[in-house]
């Protein structure tokens, strides 16, 4: 059973990184996260939908609707990363590297410090 991720910043980073390569709809994004993590992590649709909608409102991605199925009861909503979205993704990646290295520094230095 994969570990479900609810951290918004992680979901944003993963979704945008995947959208960098190709336009995807929500199920694709969820499936690829599971696949590329070896089923270690997963996100639920309820965590992803608000983030994707926020991205559309902010111009970070655009959406494209394709009606599927009989009686047109279903829609595939493909999300596409905009240039503004690429810029935001770059910012998220830099922030992630910075935070991760800072955490590593705290852990390393804290372990070296002699107890008071």
């Amino acid at each position: 059973m994969p570990h479900f991720i609810y951290d918004k910043s992680i979901i944003e980073l993963l979704a945008l990184y995947l959208l960098q390569k190709e336009d995807l709809y929500a199920y694709n994004i969820m499936k690829k996260i599971r696949k590329f993590s070896g089923e270690a992590i997963a996100i639920q649709a309820g965590s992803l939908y608000p983030i994707l909608y926020k991205f559309v409102d902010q111009g970070i991605v655009t959406d494209r609707f394709e009606t599927v199925g009989k009686r047109q009861r279903m829609t595939r909503v493909y999300y596409h990363l905009t240039p503004q979205g690429e810029e935001y993704l770059r910012h998220l990646m830099e922030e992630r590297v910075f935070v991760q290295s800072s955490i590593d520094a705290v852990l390393e230095n804290a372990s070296k410090e002699a107890p008071a």
């Binding site: 709809y25 929500a26 199920y27 694709n28 649709a45 009606t67 599927v68 279903m74 829609t75 595939r76």
Partner: peptide, 16 residues
């Protein structure tokens, strides 16, 4: 709109 999108995603899952 919400239901259509979610149906589309569930449908994709069931096809696979």
């Amino acid at each position: 709109a919400c239901l259509k999108e979610h149906r589309g995603n569930v449908d994709a899952f069931l096809k696979e």
